[in-house]
Design a protein around this nucleic acid. Structure first.
Ligand SMILES: NC(=O)c1ccc[n+]([C@@H]2O[C@H](COP(=O)([O-])OP(=O)(O)OC[C@H]3O[C@@H](n4cnc5c(N)ncnc54)[C@H](O)[C@@H]3O)[C@@H](O)[C@H]2O)c1
Ligand SMILES: NC(=O)c1ccc[n+]([C@@H]2O[C@H](COP(=O)([O-])OP(=O)(O)OC[C@H]3O[C@@H](n4cnc5c(N)ncnc54)[C@H](O)[C@@H]3O)[C@@H](O)[C@H]2O)c1
Lengths: 220, 220
DNA sequence: GTGTCTTTGTGAAAGTGTGCACAAGCGTCC
DNA sequence: GGACGCTTGTGCACACTTTCACAAAGACAC
């Protein structure tokens, strides 16, 4: 379930603050969701709550981590050592959360040999070797859009089975490969859609406030 | 609908390639979704298709843009001029897609006065002035996690109504404010979950291949 | 015109997710 | 050890989404 990482974050924060026990109600409040949903989600892991008491924070964190496969680190390999690739490789939050950068590759000779985030940039041709040696399963695409498909193909050929794609293009991969896409433009456009609706709503309100000035019914 | 930005991207790409007309089938193929879903989504905009022919690419782009409120630019203001804030401000793709950076603010005096992406970094106290002057509706949070709530409060106080949050914390905002969150750790954890399931699946297969060696039923 | 071919737009069915409401179970207090 | 209060786990109904299937409608050839 896609909400487990959120619960994990909330629980980890609570654990840091010293909370040892938490109810579905409190957790729901923190995450801004329904308490019944929290219980349904958690019951999927097994019956780890105590009726009348709640959940043991530390134990629940462990169970979620186990379910998410976070009991050990997963190295990631980044394709594209441009602005984004460098920012990601240099960002400590990656490794802290169990995803150390195990390799960075690029196609541009001027980028190869440089060090970003403590890792040497190597040529994309060496991807298979890096992936096999370090047993990497997750690849990150940080190339320009038009190179994204080629980067995906290289990753798949190297034996990667999960891809996080930052390029604003949809990539085609064989069945069985997991892909997640992070597209800033899409996020901003969804916000802009909400803004647009706000503007429209205001206009309708205004028209309604001046009787006889608007057509009947709220068109568009 | 959250899929409109994706159709917009696909259609824009097709337009650039010279396609003037497209069927729901082709569009579905490009986006990797069901053709009926595409038609339902597009019919929400109105009846802009021609039976037996398909959709006029340019006209459809215009209609989607209108629906998403992309007929004019929306300036955004970035809070936090650190690694991520600088990368975002310097990233041309923002402005190209209709979201120019209208301002960058930080709380650290050493950051203020510097120029990123052609914009001067100003103090967070001047947020209201920047937002009001430039009529900005969208704010981006690129501060560390513990400062995210404070950044959100400042944005709301300044009059922002939509927030894109890159910090890995959930922020509380008044009713009526739209928030979207981009959390890399969550994305990676979802991928790791899939990887974990693959590992489990392999283990189960192996146990089944050696009869008598495994308990009955696939536990966990 | 008429017929045929293609593709839309949409009703209905199937599937998925959400939230309420409550019994079951645990701890605690007397 | 029994009653009470609190919280989980889940059956059920409802809402929303996805997919199928097909009639309606335009284009094009003749
Ligand atoms: N910079 C940002 O803030 C930002 C934000 C959101 C999305 N993005 C997206 O991230 C992607 C990268 O952005 P960027 O600003 O880092 O671009 P960039 O041009 O700075 O970096 C791209 C890098 O990819 C390398 N590359 C190109 N083709 C390659 C290939 N086939 N194999 C391996 N490496 C290859 C290039 O040599 C270059 O080093 C783009 O798709 C962009 O749309 C960037
Ligand atoms: N760097 C990355 O690649 C990356 C990737 C994913 C997520 N993130 C997230 O993005 C956020 C920023 O990351 P970063 O690497 O840019 O951190 P950073 O430390 O480089 O930058 C943070 C900036 O925010 C400023 N700031 C702090 N409190 C503020 C406040 N109250 N108001 C205004 N400005 C304030 C700081 O002065 C600093 O300049 C973090 O939450 C991080 O988890 C970063």
């Amino acid at each position: 379930m896609a909400r487990l990482p959120i619960y994990l974050k909330l629980l980890s924060d609570q654990f840091d603050v010293g909370t040892t026990n938490i109810s579905s109600e409190e957790l729901a409040e923190l995450g801004g969701v329904n308490a019944a949903k929290v219980r349904k989600d958690l019951s999927y892991l097994g019956s780890y709550g105590t009726r009348g008491v709640g959940y043991d924070v530390e134990f629940l964190i462990f169970q979620i981590k186990r379910e998410l496969g976070l009991t050990h680190d997963w190295d990631v390999v980044i394709v594209g050592a441009g602005h984004l690739g460098k920012a990601l490789a240099g960002y400590g939050g990656f490794g802290e959360r169990g995803f150390p950068v195990g390799g960075v590759v690029d196609i541009d000779p001027s980028k190869i040999g440089g060090v970003v985030g403590g890792v040497r940039v190597r040529h994309v041709d060496q991807l298979t070797e890096i992936v096999q040696t370090k047993e990497i399963s997750i690849g990150v695409i940080a190339t320009p859009g038009q190179a994204a498909q080629s980067a995906a193909d290289s990753l798949v050929a190297a034996g990667i089975t999960s891809i996080l794609n930052f390029a604003p293009n949809i990539i085609n991969v064989p069945h069985g490969i997991s892909v997640r896409k992070v597209d800033l433009a899409v996020e901003l456009q969804i916000l802009s859609y909400h803004e647009q609706r706000r503007v429209n709503a205001r206009r309708v309100t205004k028209l309604q406030a001046v009787p006889g000035n608007g057509r009947r019914g709220a068109s568009a």
